[in-house]
């Protein structure tokens, strides 16, 4: 179960998107997330789907691999779906005893599920095609202006890249501890929510302890290799914009423009709009 989380993993492949500058991908992911929240009509949805599809095809990561990542948020998807479906007020289309499903509720549900799914897919394209180091390099250079406000850009970027690298290791470890506890009769499956949460304690305590130990070891290993903060460091892979990056920027802005235009011109259309 835990191994299904694909967010934060890197999928090695030689593709156009893999080669892009991480700053482009960061901005791209950001703009995509924004667009996911501004679309409110069928045309916008079509453009968004086309754009996402294009990215998925060009990045050469198998769709199956990405969809697997959705399994991790399945619970959130269902929960938001159910809440939206039953609790949105409006014109009733179906009602039975206390259950009351409204037209607006159905729209909201569809929108939320699409939004969440696309959100995860869009951001996982970024992490799947960018190594954590390059991603944080991108953040570090892209957000360098924050240093002006005394924000420790390099340190935060380093912390994030280490966190990303250790996600799969800790997941594997959690899996191992879980199996070890299950072998000795621990029960993670049955019981209500509170009982389940309580049952997680024997999993979380050893995981936490080991994470601390790892952190200590890693800090020592980094120091042993002369890590001394961001000052005076050089880069093995310095960030430099190539021609393809400018093309990608152009595509991004066309996409954003198109999304804004559909919203202004079409407003919410009757076929797929929320407040028709």
């Amino acid at each position: 179960m835990l191994r299904d989380i694909t967010i934060g993993q890197y999928y090695p492949e030689e593709s156009f998107i893999h080669k892009l500058d991480p700053r482009v991908k960061l901005l791209g992911a950001f703009l995509f997330v924004v667009s996911v929240f501004i679309y409110d009509n069928l045309l916008g949805f079509a453009i968004m789907t086309f754009f996402l599809g294009l990215c998925i095809v060009t990045c050469k990561v198998p769709l199956k691999f990405m969809v697997k990542g959705l399994r991790a948020i399945l619970f959130i998807l269902i929960l938001t779906g159910v809440i939206n479906l039953f609790l949105t007020p409006g014109t009733s289309v179906f009602s039975w005893r206390f259950i009351n499903i409204t037209k607006q509720g159905i729209y909201n549900t569809v929108y939320m599920i699409i939004r969440l799914t696309y959100l995860v897919l869009g951001s996982s394209i970024m992490t799947l095609t960018t190594t954590p180091t390059r991603l944080t390099d991108g953040m570090e250079t892209g957000l360098r202006f924050l240093k002006f406000f005394k924000f420790p850009v390099h340190e935060v970027a380093m912390m994030m890249s280490i966190a990303l690298r250790f996600i799969p290791i800790l997941i594997e470890e959690a899996d191992k501890i879980m199996k070890a506890q299950m072998a000795r009769g621990a029960d993670f499956e049955t019981g209500g929510l509170i009982k389940k949460a309580k049952n997680m304690v024997p999993l979380l305590v050893p995981l936490f302890v080991s994470a601390w130990r790892r952190a200590g070891d890693l800090a020592m290993a980094m120091e042993a290799r002369c890590y001394n903060g961001g000052e005076g460091r050089t880069r093995m892979k310095p960030l430099k914009y190539q021609k393809c990056d400018y093309i990608a920027y152009l595509i991004l802005f066309i996409y954003l423009g198109a999304m804004i235009a559909t919203r202004i011109i079409f407003k919410a259309d009757t076929l797929f709009g929320m407040y028709s």
Partner: peptide, 12 residues
Amino acid sequence: FQNPDNQIIAGI
């Protein structure tokens, strides 16, 4: 060091 996982910093 001893533990190979705890001394590799980068993802590649």
